[in-house]
């Protein structure tokens, strides 16, 4: 009698166990997780190709600026874009940068480097245009972001990101919330200081990482 009561209690305890009650949630999580993995496997190549196309379209503007780039595209001037990979080893941590070496008439015109980092909401991915000696920033484009609409997502507009153009890469850029005329400062987007800082941090980190290492880029054979 006592024994059956005990086993009954045990089975009651089993049924009231939080993890057992959540069996449907756990099962669904596994099923949905695998479904999402399958979607990712099937679509990631297409999405990566879309991104590459968009990056290539942005290259002239990032190297020469909007006005000159539009002129070059209109006159159908031949621009050579060589995709390459640069592995940077800082303090034992390896970072791989995908970049483009941009040249016209066989002379180096500049570099476009893809770099990413954590933003306020999600990952931010940037394309950073650099002068041939990597001494100055020649352009900035936001490839991917999911910042707050109406605040942080203002980082995508050229009015904001154009302030990076012409900045020196030798000194790290700092973000200010008030108007400042100092040469190494970036005005934050109002109400989105973290998003602005994230972008600036990615730029600083990237320019410092690639500085003096652009000779060792491995080019992808096409």
């Amino acid at each position: 009698m006592n024994q059956t009561l005990n086993s009954h209690r045990r089975s009651e305890g089993f049924r009231h166990n939080k993890l057992v009650q959540a069996w449907l949630v756990l099962l669904l999580a596994i099923i949905f997780g695998s479904a999402l993995a399958a979607v990712q496997v099937n679509l990631s190549d297409v999405i990566a190709a879309n991104k590459l196309n968009e990056s290539l379209e942005q290259v002239p503007e990032l190297v020469w600026g909007a006005a000159k780039a539009a002129e070059l595209v209109e006159n159908k001037v031949r621009i050579d874009i060589e995709p390459g990979i640069l592995t940077v080893d800082t303090d034992g941590k390896k970072t791989v940068y995908h970049l483009f070496r941009v040249s016209m008439d066989r002379t180096l015109a500049g570099w476009v480097i893809r770099a990413g980092g954590q933003g306020y909401a999600d990952k931010i991915e940037l394309l950073i245009g650099l002068s041939p000696d990597a001494g100055k920033i020649s352009g900035l484009f936001v490839l991917e972001q999911k910042e707050t609409p109406g605040l942080g997502n203002k980082i995508i507009f050229s009015q904001w990101r154009d302030q990076y153009i012409g900045k020196d890469t030798q000194t790290p850029l700092t973000v200010t919330t008030g108007r400042s005329n100092a040469p190494d400062t970036i005005d934050a987007v109002t109400g989105a200081t973290i998003s602005s800082k994230s972008v600036t941090d990615i730029v600083n980190l990237t320019t410092r990482a690639v500085n003096g290492r652009l000779a060792s880029v491995e080019y992808v054979k096409q």
Binding site: L36, V39, L43, V46, I47, N50
Partner: peptide, 13 residues
């Protein structure tokens, strides 16, 4: 789950 699938499909096509 379904939103993520829609998001990826939009990004691809």
């Amino acid at each position: 789950t379904f939103v993520t699938i829609v998001d990826r499909v939009l990004a691809a096509y």
